[in-house]
């Protein structure tokens, strides 16, 4: 345990994120090229290359490398996960959904390209994610590629991401949203894709069933953690600091962890999830697990 903490301290997280983030950005730029019809592809690239933190693709690559795989084995799937994440943001920002004008400090996709192109660009990113996984993955057996396609599809569909969004929409304005209900929303809306990213990386890298299960649990904890921290930031930071509209949850009277637990208890819950996540990494080689330790730490203590 102590040794792990030391490895974590000596690990240069900033340099790691920068280097992996650059690789991911490069791969995304190469994956989605400009072609006819230009406007759809411009819209896809506008949101995909808008400089997100690339937490999901980096998690995917880190999990793959942790179990003995290479970055190149995971890269197409890591990109696919980011395409799905981007697609869900584009659709989520639409006027009929969350109605957001600002995303990552820039006007949202439909503000720039119109609602119809935003819907189509999202659909196209969704489809391309699967095409890219199926076509561009190299050095991995077809059996594993099929497994990761199944995993991604399950995580983003009506049993995953979409379920979270649906329950979120149906909960708006409800006065009696409890903790369990809130957790359902976040486990599906946020944690499912983070979980998918990690599990997909672990499968592609050739992880054992036991390793995949541990990493799944790790990812579920940091996925929920991600949302708890998001809720806390929404009430404690400004729009400028966040690069998106702050105080939105409060204004919409949405159920959030700070609202249900109070700010202090929400912070405690975040710490508990962080600890639980890190416990899952105990059985792995400490040096190889350092990026995932640091990512959990980053998700817990990020400022935007």
């Amino acid at each position: 345990e102590e040794e792990n903490t030391q490895k974590e301290m000596s690990f240069d997280f900033k340099a790691y994120m920068l280097q992996k983030g650059n690789s991911v950005n490069q791969a995304l730029d190469n994956a989605v090229t400009l072609k006819e019809p230009l406007k759809i592809h411009e819209a896809m690239r506008y949101s995909l290359l808008a400089g997100g933190k690339r937490v999901r693709p980096i998690l995917c690559i880190a999990a793959c490398e942790l179990v003995g795989g290479t970055e190149s084995m995971a890269m197409p799937s890591a990109c696919a996960v980011e395409m799905i994440h981007t697609m869900s943001l584009i659709h989520d920002d639409l006027p009929c959904m969350d109605n957001d004008d600002l995303r990552r400090g820039k006007p949202t996709n439909h503000k720039v390209f119109g609602e119809n192109v935003a819907v189509l660009a999202g659909d196209a990113l969704l489809a391309f994610a699967f095409e890219y996984m199926a076509n561009a993955t190299v050095g991995v057996t077809p059996t594993r590629v099929i497994r990761v396609i199944t995993e991604l599809a399950k995580d983003i569909g009506a049993e995953g991401l979409v379920a979270g969004q649906v329950v979120d929409i149906l909960s708006a304005g409800l006065s009696d949203v409890g903790l369990e209900h809130l957790e359902f929303i976040h486990v599906h809306k946020t944690a499912a894709l983070l979980e998918g990213a990690v599990v997909i990386g672990a499968i592609l890298g050739g992880g054992t069933e036991e390793q995949v299960q541990k990493l799944r649990k790790f990812a579920r904890c940091i996925g929920l953690l991600f949302q708890v921290v998001d809720d806390i930031l929404d009430v404690t930071m400004s729009s400028q600091e966040l690069g998106k509209t702050a105080g939105k949850d409060l204004a919409a009277d949405k159920a959030t962890y700070p609202k249900l637990l109070g700010l202090e208890k929400a912070r405690e819950f975040a710490e508990k999830l962080n600890t639980e996540a890190k416990e899952q990494l105990a059985g792995f080689d400490a040096a190889k697990a350092a990026p995932l330790y640091a990512l959990a730490e980053y998700i817990a203590h990020r400022q935007n």
Binding site: K35, M44, N116, L120, A127, A134, N135, I149
Partner: peptide
Amino acid sequence: LLRVVSEIARAVGSTGMAAGQFL
């Protein structure tokens, strides 16, 4: 099977049906 998945994804995607709808 992987070719089938990729074929369907391409058909509904940005150079296929989504392009048709846009045009």
